[in-house]
Amino acid sequence: MIESPCVACCKLDSAKVCIGCYRHISEIVDWNRRSEAELAAIMQQVAARKAAYQQQDIFNITTSPITQAEWQAAKQASKRSQD
């Protein structure tokens, strides 16, 4: 299993991408339920996002911690997409 890129610094930007691990909230909430192929694809997206963010002044990006409501909404969306 591919390890999570989590660095325990969950701060979402306006696009709901964590600026710690560069995953979208939907990729974070169901990481452990994804296939190896899906995880590999996410890791490719993570690398691309990281490179794009490094081109920006990351200290001037408005962020907020993941709220319980955001987490629950993302989990519900994930469940609906799996049905």
Rank of each mutant, 00 (worst) to 15 (best):
residue 27 E to N: 02
residue 9 C to D: 15
residue 40 A to F: 04
residue 28 I to V: 11
residue 83 D to I: 05
residue 28 I to D: 01
residue 64 S to V: 02
residue 72 Q to D: 15
residue 30 D to K: 05
residue 69 A to V: 12
residue 83 D to P: 03
residue 75 K to W: 01
residue 23 R to D: 00
residue 4 S to G: 05
residue 49 R to E: 10
residue 3 E to V: 06
residue 39 L to R: 15
residue 29 V to P: 05
residue 63 T to K: 07
residue 65 P to D: 08
residue 3 E to K: 13
residue 78 S to L: 07
residue 9 C to S: 13
residue 23 R to T: 01
residue 49 R to G: 05
residue 15 A to W: 04
residue 6 C to A: 03
residue 52 A to N: 03
residue 45 Q to A: 15
residue 13 D to K: 01
residue 27 E to P: 01
residue 15 A to Y: 07
residue 47 A to M: 03
residue 39 L to G: 13
residue 7 V to Q: 05
residue 29 V to A: 06
residue 66 I to A: 15
residue 8 A to E: 12
residue 55 Q to V: 07
residue 31 W to V: 01
residue 45 Q to H: 08
residue 64 S to D: 14
residue 69 A to K: 13
residue 44 Q to I: 12
residue 42 I to H: 06
residue 26 S to H: 12
residue 49 R to V: 04
residue 79 K to P: 00
residue 40 A to K: 14
residue 34 R to D: 00
residue 67 T to I: 09
residue 25 I to G: 02
residue 1 M to A: 12
residue 47 A to R: 08
residue 18 C to N: 04
residue 12 L to G: 00
residue 78 S to G: 10
residue 23 R to E: 01
residue 20 G to D: 03
residue 51 A to P: 00
residue 66 I to N: 07
residue 21 C to W: 01
residue 29 V to F: 06
residue 79 K to T: 04
residue 33 R to G: 15
residue 72 Q to G: 08
residue 72 Q to T: 09
residue 62 T to F: 09
residue 13 D to Q: 00
residue 48 A to N: 05
residue 47 A to I: 04
residue 51 A to S: 14
